[in-house]
């Protein structure tokens, strides 16, 4: 069953006099529970596509439907509410809030959802246990290693049980050993928690951990070397 449907999406922006169009009529379908990696050369538009799916960027044309919601039709405020409930974002540089502890960083997305303090405590506890950082709950980001920070970032992304988790080069700033730990953790998130993941990476080893490996070249998506069939833009 398709969870994410990217339909004829184009994105363009102006850089000085020049109009850049990193995505031009891109189509993509991601099923529920899939772990999709997205590779491509620098500037190919893979991060742009990820940001569009995550709802932090706006399409120039086309449609993105996630769990039946056309997010391109949502206002900025509604889109923020939608992100809170449906998207977990894992950043390359962790992006933890420095003045909050690991526990508070993980709790942050839950503050946006209607739930009791006890439920929040329970969920944060589970998320921190999932990334094996229960004993670091009271530590601030400056007191943790890069790998630990990224694990807190992953806990923050999964704690609200989002519809989709997006990861923008989650191992880009980590050493090999830590990279391995993080990729294993992402696999566990996908397999054991059944979460749908879309991961952008430059690393072919990292990409190989995904259940589907996609490559974006000149606005065309390829899967296992085969170009994905373009789809016509359906009218709503």
């Amino acid at each position: 069953m398709a969870l994410v449907e990217v339909i004829a999406v184009s994105k363009e922006y102006q850089s000085g006099e020049e109009i850049i169009r990193p995505l031009d009529g891109v189509n993509l379908t991601i099923g529920e529970g899939e772990f999709v990696s997205l590779m491509g050369a620098s500037g190919s538009g893979k991060s742009t596509l990820l940001n569009l799916v995550a709802g932090i960027d706006q399409v120039t044309s086309g449609r993105i439907e996630i769990a039946g919601t056309d997010i391109t039709q949502l206002s900025r405020g509604k889109l923020a509410d939608w992100r809170a409930a449906h998207v977990g974002y894992i950043f390359q540089t962790h992006n933890l809030i420095p003045v909050l502890t690991a526990y508070e960083n993980v709790e942050l997305p839950l503050m946006l959802l209607p739930m009791s303090a006890a439920e929040r405590r329970n969920r944060v506890g589970i998320a921190l246990a999932a990334v094996d950082l229960t004993n670091r709950a009271d530590h601030y980001p400056r007191q943790m290693s890069g790998g630990q920070e990224q694990r807190v970032g992953i806990a923050r992304a999964i704690v609200a049980n989002p519809t989709i988790v997006v990861a923008d080069e989650p191992t880009g700033s980590l050493d090999d050993n830590t990279t391995e730990q993080i990729l294993t953790l992402l696999q566990r998130v996908n397999r054991e928690l059944g979460m749908t993941l879309l991961m952008v990476t430059h690393d072919t080893d990292a990409a190989s951990r995904a259940t589907r490996q996609l490559r974006l070249e000149r606005s065309e998506l390829y899967e296992n070397g085969t170009r994905l069939a373009p789809r016509a833009l359906r009218t709503a």
Binding site: A54, I56, R76, G77, A80, D81, W82, R83, A84, A85, V87, Y89, F91, T93, N95, I97, P98, L108, P109, L112, R156
Partner: peptide
């Protein structure tokens, strides 16, 4: 700037 953008990405309104 990045921290404030992160909060927006998480779902906090402006």
């Amino acid at each position: 700037i990045r921290e404030l953008a992160t909060l927006q990405a998480i779902g906090y309104r402006r």
